[in-house]
């Protein structure tokens, strides 16, 4: 099985550690992963901001870049949802065919649980952690409890339940700028919920949402750090996250 990593433009540019952790984790589980250098962006920002026409060439380029691979793993539920839900509609030439990337893309927790069939990935993370299920992981991809099953097997972890976990954090891409007051009010409630758990670490399957909540956590000096799911799952005693 030839596996490609689609890191996403946001992770590539701002959160390289998530990419490194994904590669490390998959290798530890015995699967090599390639990083196709032609990759850039899934087109979600343009589509969701109303620039549909500018999203189309990004979608077409994505489909070409990832055509040779049997599976595409991405540490972003939101981008996986974009590829699965929207790429067939935006680039109809590949719609419905076995070659369509929408059928081969897996968000990281889906890949681990469904494709590799593992929940215990041999991770070690002795900290209090709460998990925020991002909207697109929850309601578009429907990853269900996969991330929590993976986290539940991490040695040493103290998992705390997040109240009102299914509430949006208020990120929503350019929504956070266009409606910044409403977005900030949503974020403030999420921060309150996170702080109430007593967790030291907030975990999610999307760095964009994590950066949003994390930006408010550091601004309010909450003393809670944010870590992508991949980084906790890659963490070991020898190489802690």
């Amino acid at each position: 099985m030839r596996v490609a990593l689609f890191l996403t433009c946001v992770n590539d540019t701002l959160f390289p550690e998530t990419g490194k952790a994904t590669v490390r984790l998959l290798r530890r589980l015995g699967h090599d992963v390639e990083f196709p250098a032609g990759q850039t962006c899934c087109g979600q920002m343009h589509l969701n901001t109303g620039y549909r026409r500018q999203a189309v060439p990004l979608v077409t380029a994505f489909e070409e870049t990832f055509a040779p691979y049997d599976a595409i793993v991405t540490p972003s539920a939101s981008c996986a949802a974009m590829i699965r839900d929207w790429h067939p509609r935006l680039a109809p030439s590949s719609a419905g065919t076995a070659a369509s990337a929408g059928r081969r893309v897996h968000e990281l927790s889906e890949f681990l649980v469904d494709v590799l069939g593992v929940t215990d990935v041999g991770a070690y993370f002795p900290h209090r952690v709460t998990y925020h299920p991002t909207c697109h992981s929850l309601r578009t991809l429907r990853v269900g409890d996969r991330p929590l099953r993976l986290l539940g097997e991490v040695r040493g972890i103290d998992l705390r339940e997040l109240p009102d976990a299914d509430e949006c954090c208020g990120f929503g891409g350019t929504f956070a700028l266009k409606n910044s007051e409403v977005s900030a009010a949503m974020c403030a409630d999420k921060v309150t919920a996170v702080r109430g758990t007593g967790a030291e670490t907030l975990c999610a399957a999307d760095n964009s949402c994590l950066a949003h909540i994390g930006g408010a956590l550091t601004r309010t000096r909450a003393g809670v750090r944010t870590l992508h799911l991949a980084e906790i799952l890659a963490s070991t005693e020898q190489a802690p996250a």
């Binding site: 992770n11 590539d12 390289p16 700028l177 408010a216």
Partner: peptide
């Protein structure tokens, strides 16, 4: 509008692609 209430993440010293 973002940084009114939230810090923004700083770019890393090296992108994943460069690494």
């Amino acid at each position: 509008a973002w940084t009114e209430t939230r810090d923004a993440p700083a770019p890393p010293s090296e992108s994943f692609r460069a690494w």
